[in-house]
Simulated assay, not measured.
Amino acid sequence: MIGIYLSGTGNTKHCVEKLVYLIDDKSKCLPLEHPQIVHILEKHYIIVLGYPTQFSNAPFMVRDFIKKNSSLWKGKKVFCVNTMGLFSGDGTGCTARILKKYGAEILGGLQIKMPDSVCDSKLLKKDIEENRQVVKNADKRIEQVAEQIRCGKYPQEGLSFIAHIKGLFGQRLWFYHKTLGYTDKLKISDACIGCGLCSRECPMGNIKIKDKKAVSGEQCTMCYRCISLCPQKAITLLGDQVIEQCRYEKYK
């Protein structure tokens, strides 16, 4: 077994690592952008795939990775995990349907509520104690699911036809243009000091440092990693001001 994930603010990383290690403490977990990830996945047949949902859809980077490596999935057994701030619908189903198309067997799905990760919007914001409780609830649920899986029972959250309808009409149809592909909407203000942290951390390699300033390209996958880490709060995406830098580490 191996766990792989796209994680912007640390939520999904935590959930995948906790689940995988509870099932098999000898297994590894790696980020999707790991330079050897395809070669490593070729050697494993049971995969836990985790990612945050964006408007009831999987991030384009995740869907793009699956499609670009279509031959990789034949014969693999995949358990899908998605994290959400409030609502997911069929967040796990979004990748499960693509994976099945390329020959993967879907073991199940788990949809976990975690602290909101959208740093530049007031929507869904909670105080630290509320978010700590959200994490505690998530940890308890992951522990329960790990026990189920050890007994051979995989939850099927987000994989049903009803879940598909909920995700489609709950958010995805209305916001589909936001997750259709990568975005060029990342904004970097004059507060940037060119420290390079965002450039080093971006999973897409979308941010470069030019003339001691960060410059964004057109390949943002909306993970919010750079926004949650920028020491100057100089980066925004959906909003125009950083409301809170939402990192999992704050709520442990």
Rank of each mutant, 00 (worst) to 15 (best):
M1K: 07
Y5D: 08
Y5A: 07
S7W: 14
T9I: 08
T9W: 00
V16Q: 02
V16S: 02
Y21D: 02
I23N: 08
D24M: 12
S27K: 13
K28P: 02
L30Y: 15
P35M: 15
H39Y: 14
Y45V: 14
Y45G: 10
I47W: 15
G50E: 13
Y51I: 00
Y51G: 02
P52Y: 00
F55Y: 05
S56F: 15
N57Y: 04
N57G: 11
K68H: 08
S71I: 03
L72K: 07
L72A: 02
W73T: 02
K74V: 05
G75C: 01
G75N: 03
K76D: 09
K76Q: 01
V78P: 12
V81Y: 00
M84W: 08
S88R: 13
S88H: 06
G89A: 07
D90P: 09
C94K: 07
T95Y: 03
T95I: 08
A96W: 01
L99R: 11
K100D: 14
K100Y: 13
L110W: 00
K113Q: 07
M114D: 01
D120W: 10
D120P: 06
S121M: 14
D127C: 09
I128D: 10
E130H: 09
Q133F: 08
V135G: 00
V135A: 03
K136I: 11
Q144W: 14
V145K: 15
R150K: 09
G152E: 02
K153L: 09
L159N: 01
H164E: 06
I165W: 03
L168K: 10
Q171A: 12
L173W: 02
L173E: 04
F175H: 13
F175V: 03
H177R: 07
H177W: 15
T183N: 09
D184F: 04
K185N: 15
K187N: 12
S189I: 13
G196Y: 05
C198N: 13
C198P: 12
R200I: 03
R200V: 02
P203W: 01
I207T: 06
K208R: 06
I209G: 03
K212S: 07
A214C: 06
G217D: 03
Q219C: 13
Q219G: 12
S228Y: 00
Q232W: 04
I235P: 02
T236D: 06
D240K: 09
E244A: 01
R247I: 00
Y248S: 10
Y248M: 12
K250I: 01
